[in-house]
Design a binder for these strands. Structure first.
Lengths: 237, 237
DNA sequence: TAGGATACCTACTCATGAGTATGATCGAGG
DNA sequence: CCTCGATCATACTCATGAGTAGGTATCCTA
């Protein structure tokens, strides 16, 4: 009746920009893992554009210029496909934590580094899958698994915040609420980034880190008296 | 096959806590508007618990202890139902802007007031509908309408930020990015609030406002010298 | 070069859920 | 009492999409 499936008319048919391992001379003996990854990638892009429930496996297959049973040849079912997309995205964030773990910098800086990678991951094609993979769409077992992964990241951020408060590189605050605020702001990138790609994920993340760090209240608050002051917060010259 | 529909077994059947205008002696001549609102409320709660696509109109009807055609007697279709839920939530935020418009306080304070109401709205039963009402689930016309409402709120926040920068109550910043960060953190409440109701929406919003205002960098940065900490970018003392 | 394994497709099944046709019931006005 | 309109239920239609059965073409190996 009314046209669901937002997007340009005729969408869902055109092959994705990134080359499909299937196109190009039907090489059968292509590495299975490569094709499997291509399926996951195509699924992530489709979910990102049309949402999980509005994406059929036929859509995903069409993107790869194959048919549905081929997709099922590489993944067991749709929910596992979503799960794989989720894991692919989360792995980037976990990598960021690992990368930072043995860095010998103040926790505040380590946190910023993680947040930057976090933001990049959110702006990637897997961002949608990470934030919109609702537990309601998944079996209880996978829901638990996803929650555990999310919690791990949440705890990692809280830990860095606590350490930062300890070593003086972060202002005293409630680590839990602060972690929620930070993660929320970054997670939200996955919602609007689709439409406005004028900045890269890294640039957005960097901008956010600056905002988080400085806060909204002017630093040189005591000076704000005159009428049209604009000499606020001048970093030492 | 595998049990979708997360939640306690047998869920979707039990009537909702808030009384249904239908229960209680079948009063026919009850105000139509009251029943219509009850439908929207029940839908919002169902969407919030199970997601839009995992909620059937039979589910919603069961919550109200009526049947599906009765629901259709009050709303034209499912997508309009989602739309109404969205509008119900957004209206609270618009009201916050109106309430603050003629206040004669610094823009920074007006912004904080709006953010607090914003957070409360997100923690309400309509929070989910506001942030998860994907344009992909709606017809192009409604999608446009929703985007317009969202944009109005976004622009309102940006305006307050700009005014705050002007009047000195907010530190200089990029209004667009800052609005994204603030709205993102608050929107995210709708995702996790379900599971942890130890704080009210207002309390959460207040906590967030405090975090946003102060920022992560310690205010008394000049004093952090003791244990080998590198005092980064010290604000002028 | 037969035989198996791999990779893929055509053509289905089947459950779900949105939306509806049709009729029953009840209150109110005449 | 009788009818009309508002309200609600029973019992459907019908499109969609997940998942599968079974067959086919290609490659590898012996």
């Amino acid at each position: 009746m009314n046209s669901r499936r937002a997007g340009p008319p005729g969408a869902g048919k055109q092959p994705v920009a990134t080359a499909s391992p299937w196109r190009a001379s039907r090489e059968r003996q292509h590495d299975r893992a490569v094709k499997r990854e291509a399926v996951i990638r195509a699924a992530a892009q489709a979910f990102n554009e049309k949402g999980y429930h509005n994406t059929s496996l036929d859509d995903i297959a069409a993107r790869l210029e194959v048919t549905k049973p081929t997709v099922y040849y590489y993944v067991s079912n749709k929910e596992r496909l979503l799960f794989q997309c989720f894991v692919a995205g989360v792995e980037r964030i976990r990598a960021a934590f690992r990368e930072v773990r043995d860095l010998r910098a103040p926790a505040g800086e380590r946190l910023n580094a993680v947040l930057r990678h976090y933001g990049e991951a959110m702006a990637s094609e897997f961002g949608w899958c990470m934030v919109r993979a609702e537990d309601q769409d998944l079996s209880p077992a996978m829901s638990r698994h996803i929650k555990a992964l999310k919690s791990e990241i949440d705890q990692g951020i809280r830990r860095l915040i606590r350490e930062g408060v300890q070593d003086g590189s972060i202002a005293r605050c409630d680590p839990k609420m602060t972690a929620f605020a930070l993660a929320g702001a970054l997670n939200w990138i996955a919602h609007w980034y689709r439409e406005n790609q004028s900045m890269t994920g890294a640039e957005i993340a960097a901008a956010f880190v600056t905002i988080f760090e400085g806060g909204l209240r002017p630093r040189s608050a005591a000076l704000k008296v005159a009428a049209g002051v604009r000499t606020r917060r001048r970093v030492r010259a």
